[in-house]
Amino acid sequence: MIDFHCHLDLYKNPLAVFEEVKKRKVRVLAVTTSPRAYLKSLQYFGNTDDVNVALGFHPELVADRRSEIELFMEQLSNCRYIGEVGVDGTARNQYSYTVQKSFFYNVLNETEKQNGRILSIHSRGAVTEVLDGIEKSINKNIPIMHWFTGNAKELQRALSLGCWFSINPKMCYTKSGKDMVMQIPLNKMLPETDAPFTEKNGKLYMPWDTDVIEFLAIQYGKSIFEIKNQMEINLRVLNNSI
Rank of each mutant, 00 (worst) to 15 (best):
M1E: 08
M1V: 09
I2E: 04
I2W: 10
D3R: 03
D3Y: 00
H5N: 07
D9I: 08
L10S: 13
N13H: 15
A16S: 09
V17A: 03
F18V: 00
E19L: 07
E19T: 07
K22H: 11
V28W: 01
L29T: 08
A30P: 00
V31F: 06
V31Y: 02
T32I: 11
T33P: 02
T33D: 10
S34C: 10
R36E: 15
R36N: 13
A37K: 15
Y38P: 05
L39V: 06
N52R: 15
V53G: 05
A54Y: 03
L61I: 01
L61M: 08
L61G: 06
D64Y: 13
D64S: 14
R66C: 13
S67P: 04
S67I: 08
E70F: 04
F72K: 06
E74H: 14
L76Q: 02
S77E: 10
R80N: 03
Y81W: 12
V87W: 06
T90A: 04
T90S: 10
N93E: 13
Y95H: 07
Y97C: 07
T98V: 11
V99R: 13
V99D: 09
T111G: 00
I118P: 09
S120C: 03
I121N: 15
S123D: 12
G125K: 07
A126P: 14
T128K: 08
E129L: 09
E129Q: 14
L131P: 04
G133Y: 07
G133H: 12
S137V: 15
S137Y: 13
M145H: 09
A152T: 13
A152D: 15
E154W: 14
E154S: 10
Q156I: 06
S160L: 06
S160T: 07
L161S: 04
C163I: 08
W164S: 04
W164D: 01
F165H: 02
I167M: 02
P169R: 04
G177Y: 07
G177W: 03
M180Y: 06
V181C: 06
I184A: 00
P185Q: 12
P185F: 06
P185Y: 09
P185V: 11
N187F: 01
K188I: 10
L190I: 05
E192H: 05
E192K: 03
T198R: 13
K203L: 15
L204W: 03
L204S: 11
Y205T: 01
D211G: 00
I218W: 15
Q219D: 02
G221P: 01
I224H: 01
F225S: 12
E226M: 09
E226K: 14
I227R: 02
Q230W: 04
M231N: 02
E232I: 06
N239V: 14
S241R: 12
I242F: 11
I242S: 05
